[in-house]
Amino acid sequence: MPSTLNTALIQTDLYWEDPVSNRKMFEEKIAGIPADVDLIVLPEMFTTGFTMKPENIQLSEGEGTVKWMKQIAQQQNKALVGSIVFQENGKFFNRLFFISPEGRTQVYDKKHTFTLAGEDEVYEAGHEKLIFQYKGFKICPMICYDLRFPVWARNTEDYDVLIYVANWPKKRINAWDTLLKARAIENMSYCIGVNRTGKDGLDFEYPGHSAVYDVLGETLAFSEDEKILYATLDKEHIESTRKKLRFLEDRDRFNLIG
């Protein structure tokens, strides 16, 4: 069983509501990622930007992007994770896909839709937390606004890695920095946050600040620039720290209702 997980975080500007151009851009960036990387993390709505006009996106683009993710994962022998605009049964979702190199697919629909932008009026909220296994690591992926709700991320499953993909604006970036580190410390897990850069079609600015924190909140990677960040996650670090500092064993016991 592997004891490390090599990750790559793609922090970049996005073409507004243009899946074709974004897929091409990401494909070019992914082609230059080293062979030993196991998992590539893409931003929230990585083919469109954070649009509240999903009707501007062709219905076929969701399935088209999933097909593209599977092709890239197989060709590069790396797993991909990121969220896109996805339409199903006449409803829109901010849906995250995890695709393994073998084509195994896991999905997570954003639980906390961003009411400040009216996301709750456009996209259906998810109700199920996702934990998946990859190369010996238990991984919990979430999306942007979910970061503000610690109970939803509470580590009752003893997961190893918490991932947030986001379009988090510059004006509230201090909250992003603070909460990512807090989620790592309180859950005694690695915490990965991938944000975008640039300006979107509504003129909102995004400053990057993608980061990786270890189970004690120490910074393994951080950048404000448009670039690919790399970090190696170590299973032994998780296990030895939790064994020495048994904080998770003292967590409060309660169940979520509704």
Rank of each mutant, 00 (worst) to 15 (best):
P43A: 04
P43H: 01
E44H: 08
M45E: 11
M45N: 08
T48C: 01
F50T: 02
F50Q: 05
T51R: 03
P54H: 05
P54T: 02
I57L: 06
Q58R: 14
L59G: 12
S60Y: 10
S60G: 12
S60N: 09
E63G: 15
E63V: 15
G64A: 13
G64L: 13
G64Y: 05
G64M: 12
T65L: 13
V66P: 14
V66D: 10
K67R: 13
K67C: 14
K67G: 15
M69K: 04
M69P: 14
K70V: 11
Q71H: 09
I72D: 02
Q75T: 13
N77P: 07
N77T: 07
K78D: 10
A79M: 08
L80G: 09
G82S: 04
S83P: 15
S83V: 10
S83R: 02
I84R: 07
I84E: 13
F86P: 07
F86E: 14
E88K: 11
E88Y: 05
N89H: 10
N89L: 11
G90F: 09
K91Q: 09
F93G: 14
F93W: 10
F93A: 15
F97Q: 10
F97L: 12
F98T: 05
F98R: 00
I99R: 10
S100G: 11
P101R: 02
E102T: 04
E102D: 01
E102N: 05
G103P: 09
T105K: 04
Q106N: 06
Q106T: 03
V107G: 09
D109Q: 05
D109N: 13
K111V: 03
K111F: 01
K111M: 01
K111I: 06
H112V: 00
T113A: 05
F114D: 08
T115N: 08
T115M: 12
L116Q: 08
L116C: 13
L116D: 11
A117W: 00
G118N: 00
E119I: 10
E119V: 06
D120C: 11
D120H: 02
D120I: 02
D120Y: 01
E121N: 05
E121M: 11
V122S: 03
V122A: 02
V122G: 05
A125C: 05
G126H: 04
G126S: 01
H127Q: 03
E128F: 01
E128W: 03
E128H: 09
K129Q: 03
K129P: 02
I131E: 06
I131C: 07
I131M: 04
Q133N: 13
Q133K: 06
